[in-house]
Design a protein around this nucleic acid. Structure first.
Length: 590
RNA sequence: GGGGUCGUAGCUCAGCUUGGUUAGAGCGCCUGCCUGUCACGCAGGAGGUCGAGGGUUCGAGUCCCUUCGGCCCCGCCA
């Protein structure tokens, strides 16, 4: 009997079938539903494996039935009985255990439960703040548990895949040196060194590069990363990456390995065949066709540039912007010429909220084209624009003008918005896409200097190295992002592996020799001792699981996530700490 | 830092436009009845700081201001 005061389970709530009929078994689990008919009592007992109907009969087993009367939602039970086939007409084909039930003769209530604040079923929506406060209850819901079962399987497939390919899983520090570039660091004060701080890693970037210098050749790690930036539906302050780095490789090698991992994960877990190789698209093309560096290619509504028509227009807003190297571009939304003036006004406000100066629209009717700027745009110009978009009667053309970056980005957002309104984003498609040839640097107006688009260790394209001297903004990077249905799910690059180029990069970023030595000296030093050419990638693991489970937010695939304001509602982190703790750290709150 | 949206019973929501009896519904909960239910059924009952604070008014869930919190977006996120 052992030390237990209750009967341990002999089966789970998900496994009993017809062939178990006649066996005496013990189940443990939670009361999911209670159906007390006055005489017979039916209980759906739930554990993570499923649900099983157990029956209490006042005639057959009076003692157990008497106890069962007091059962309520979420009570924890150990129940022993005999598996029976259900009478033919009472079988439940909806449930995997629906052919049988268990006639209970021995019942132990292992624990009672207060009435839960929300039901543990998957029928109704529950407000997210409540779900997060009672996360332990939310995590009991089968639909939520399924997300974590899938997540678990993805860990296993990932480890197996990279192991088979000869990768070594090596842990890197969580307490590391703060780095100046990139996202804001979470800081951890050092008690032993007054006034000094560790940082939590934004990613193990420098460590994995140093592992390459050490000769580990193929490294991977499923690792937590931390960024102290504002949150989004797909962004949490702590998140999980599949971090990968390889030596003696080029872009193609990394992409092939990456694709293989994705193919494996999707095949094993979703039984979905993903075709290799994934399509490639340059950053420039992605921007000009989709207005995004992570284009959703599941639907059309592609952007077209009509600057050459607009540049000679009497409409100064258009002609001026083209003169100043800007563009006029738009999308053609089929069938929406029926939009009313007020609907279009709302749309105009929407693009203005995204930073557009305004919105010019053309309603394409059978007989004529109505243009919102017809005072300034001639009929010929309207017709030319309509022709450019291959517009048919009933179409609505939406035009935005501005700098290349801004106009296209706004159109990219507008394109997604219109696709959602038209309900034209197909379900069940898995459109993977490599976006390549990103710019290496971009000029930050705020900081009045160049900043790295990817990170400061990304190598420039060899043919663009001369540009670093003449026109750094034009240089392209050996960087690549993996996009799935409009979501960035991985990003990587071939790294700089020589001390000279890395120093050059730091100086372009406005980081002086002395500062570079102070902040990244360990990496520059390492590069002096035979650093192999290397590159890598990091997958946004939570995002991949989010997409695979059809979740709307990565919160649904993270066991204990934080709210949009970075709060953990269950344990109320962050919280104040004792003055004594602060004193030890020599910290005073301003 | 900015914009949008939501906050009313344990839960999900209606009521707010146009201020006016005792603030409603469904589910859940409690009690009773019920021996083949399976989101059981029937009958009855309890349950409200209308997020908080202030203001306007004879009177505020409803109008105004401030504030807190959830969610979404922009900025930010190498």
């Amino acid at each position: 009997m052992g030390l237990s005061t209750f009967k341990k389970r002999t089966v789970t709530c998900g496994e009993l079938r017809k062939n178990h009929v006649g066996k005496t078994i013990t189940l443990t689990g939670w009361v999911d539903k209670r159906r007390d008919l006055g005489g017979l009592i039916f209980i759906d007992l739930r554990d993570r494996y499923g649900k099983t109907q157990i029956v209490f009969s006042p005639e057959r087993h009076e003692g157990a039935h008497e106890i069962a009367k007091s059962l309520r939602s979420e009570y924890v039970l150990s129940a022993t009985g005999v598996v029976r086939a259900r009478p033919e007409e009472t079988r439940n084909p909806e449930v995997t255990t629906g052919e049988i039930e268990v006639d209970i003769h021995e019942l132990t209530i292992l624990n009672k439960s207060e009435t839960p604040p929300f039901p543990m079923d998957d029928y109704g929506d529950v407000n997210e703040d409540l779900r997060l406060k009672y996360r332990y209850l939310d995590l009991r819901r089968p639909s939520v548990q399924n997300n974590f079962i899938m997540r678990h399987r993805a860990y296993q497939v990932t480890r197996q895949y990279f192991d088979q390919k000869g990768f070594l899983e090596i842990e890197t520090p969580i307490l590391m040196k703060s780095t100046p570039e990139g996202a804001r660091d979470f800081l951890v004060p050092s008690r032993l060194h007054h006034g000094k701080f560790y940082a939590l890693p934004q990613s193990p970037q420098t460590y994995k590069q140093i592992l390459m210098v050490s000769g580990f050749d193929r490294y991977f790690q499923i690792v937590k990363c931390f960024r102290d930036e504002d949150l989004r539906a797909d962004r949490q302050p702590e998140f999980t990456q599949i971090d990968v780095e390889m030596s003696f490789v080029d872009e193609e090698d990394i992409q092939q390995i990456t694709e293989g991992a994705i193919v494996d994960i999707f095949k094993t877990i979703l039984n979905t065949d993903v075709q290799q190789p994934f399509p490639r698209m340059t950053y420039t093309e992605a921007m000009e066709r989709f207005g995004s560096d992570k284009p959703d290619t599941r639907f059309g509504l592609e952007i077209r540039n009509c600057s050459e028509i607009a540049q000679h227009s009497g409409f100064r807003v258009f002609s001026d912007v083209v003169k100043k190297n800007g563009i006029v571009a738009g999308i053609n939304v089929p069938g929406l010429a029926s939009y009313t003036r007020s609907q279009l006004d709302i749309l105009t406000d929407y693009v203005k909220s995204l930073g557009a100066g305004g919105l010019v629209y053309l309603r394409v009717n059978a007989d004529k084209i109505e243009c919102s700027a017809s005072k300034f745009i001639t009929e010929d110009e309207s017709n030319a624009i309509a022709k450019k978009f291959e517009a048919k009667p009933g179409d609505l053309i939406l035009l935005i003008s501005g700098t290349w970056q801004k106009a296209l980005t706004i159109l990219g957002t507008l394109r997604l918005e219109m696709a959602q309104r038209l309900n034209s984003i197909p379900e069940g498609k898995w459109n993977f896409l490599w976006v390549t040839d990103f710019p290496l640097l971009e000029f930050s107006e705020e900081e009045k200097r160049f900043v790295a688009v990817h990170h400061p260790f990304t190598a420039p394209k060899p043919e663009d190295v001369p540009l670093l001297e003449t026109d750094p903004g034009k240089a392209r990077a050996r960087a690549y992002d993996l996009v799935l249905n409009g979501n960035e799910i991985a990003g990587g690059s071939i790294r700089i592996h020589t001390q000279e180029v890395q120093s050059k990069m730091f100086s372009l970023l406005g980081i002086g020799t002395e500062e570079a030595q102070r902040k990244f000296g360990f990496l520059l030093d390492a590069f002096k001792y035979g650093a192999p050419p290397h590159g890598g990638i990091a997958f946004g693991f939570d995002r991949i699981i989010m997409l695979m489970t059809g979740s709307k937010s990565i919160r649904d695939v993270i066991a204990f996530p934080k709210t949009a304001s970075g709060m953990s509602l269950m344990d109320e982190a962050p919280s104040t700490v004792d003055v004594k703790q602060l004193d030890e750290l020599h910290i005073k709150i301003k």
